[in-house]
Amino acid sequence: MPRRPDRPAAPGPRAETVVRRIDPAAHARLVGLARRHRGTLFMVLHAALALVLRRAGAGDDIAIGAPVAARTAGVPDDLIGFFVNLVVLRTDLSGDPTGAELLARVRHGDIAAFAHQDVPFETVVADLNPARAPGRHPLVDVVLALQNNARAELRLPGVRSRVEVVRTGAARFELLVDVTDEHGPAGEPAGIALTIEYQAEVFDPAVPQWLADALLRVLDALAARPQDRLSALDELVDPPAAPVEAAVPASPVPGRRPYLGPRTELERRLAATWAEVLGVDRVGVHDDFFVLGGNSLRAVRVAARIAATERRRLTTTQIFATPTVAGLAEALAAAPSRAEPGIPRLPRIPRVRSAPTVGEE
């Protein structure tokens, strides 16, 4: 996606939204398209979003995240808790398939991915071990969520209630396409609410607005002409203007340099902490923390241990920014030392004798 050339290296979470609506008639056509191709509304939305991202320059191999409730057979229905997991859906748009062929690919890929939705996302990230960058999700930039659960209803005598969505104003992903599927009293399609939430420091407002309008046009074309090839569907929308990207350095490619052992006492202490947390025999000063098997949870453990032993402030953001012993040692050496924290003494509360009760002398 075309990102702002002046975006910071670690964008903040401030979010903006773009809202569009799909009328009940168009909603019904999309549901009919899904049924004719043995799919679901989510799969139709997934195919259309992948096509729009391709038009924006994302290529023919696109990964989109999808949150799932993760309440499968292994989780009791009456167990209270938050089990949501993120599944990465990979989409192949190569070869100029028809819309119907793309739907078949998406259906096959989604079913295969959802069959493994119980695998924790942290496990997937640890096994794939992608290059990390501050402020960036490790595997996906775009997430598609379909809110199609039964609406919660609060029924009280003499009280009318309704569900109202309240946005936090903070974006967890660069782009979240949040879709709400609405139905009438008899279950008939009653329209779709489409909300695109995006990181304001990453995208100019014109880009998510373009994506919202392009998504509506592609959905309408897929429902009307699924036999058209993607090259014909591409002609429905002009690609967004791409800003110059020279101001933003490319993400580093993970790799291991020749082993070089610690050279100072500080580097030796840091390397020993890393080796203990990561469960490895040795750590070189140029070894990448995440290539060795580190993740965000282990980064928290390392930051806490180093901050306690070195008496210097250390955050996980610093580990993401300088994921080597040499780089971290240099940053810590330049950081001011903080005093040993003492145990705060609580103010002494004087004992107050209560008033005598009846019969007490």
Results as ranks from 00 to 15, higher is better:
V283G: 00
P249H: 03
V166T: 03
R105H: 07
G39Y: 02
R268E: 13
R3I: 07
A47W: 02
G279Y: 00
A308L: 13
Y259T: 07
P5H: 04
I306E: 08
L45R: 02
D127N: 00
T180Y: 15
L233C: 07
A28I: 15
T317K: 15
A115E: 14
T324L: 01
A247V: 04
A15R: 06
V248Q: 01
V280G: 02
R155H: 10
V163T: 13
V75T: 13
E340G: 12
L45M: 05
G39I: 05
R268Y: 15
Q227K: 03
R14Y: 15
A224H: 04
A48K: 03
S251I: 13
P134A: 09
G81I: 11
E16T: 15
L86V: 14
E188N: 06
E182G: 01
G74W: 15
F320S: 03
V177L: 02
E340T: 12
V358T: 11
D213Y: 10
R36C: 05
H286Q: 11
P205N: 04
L270Q: 06
H108V: 13
L260F: 14
A242C: 02
L297K: 00
P243A: 04
D287C: 10
R29K: 13
G187F: 15
P8C: 07
D23N: 12
S296Q: 04
A272Q: 12
A63L: 13
D23H: 10
G158N: 04
A9F: 12
Q209K: 15
V19H: 11
P356V: 06
G59V: 05
S251D: 10
A150F: 11
V75C: 13
R217P: 00
L30C: 04
S337L: 12
V68C: 09
S296H: 03
H116S: 07
F114R: 10
R36F: 06
R55L: 06
L79I: 11
F320T: 07
R4C: 01
L222Y: 11
V253D: 08
L30Q: 07
P240F: 05
R38K: 14
N129L: 14
V179A: 02
A73G: 02
R268P: 05
R7H: 07
E164L: 09
Q199P: 00
P258W: 09
A56N: 02
E174D: 14
R155V: 11
L93K: 12
P24V: 06
A241L: 13
D6V: 04
F173G: 06
L53P: 01
P347W: 08
A333L: 15
R338M: 14
D287M: 11
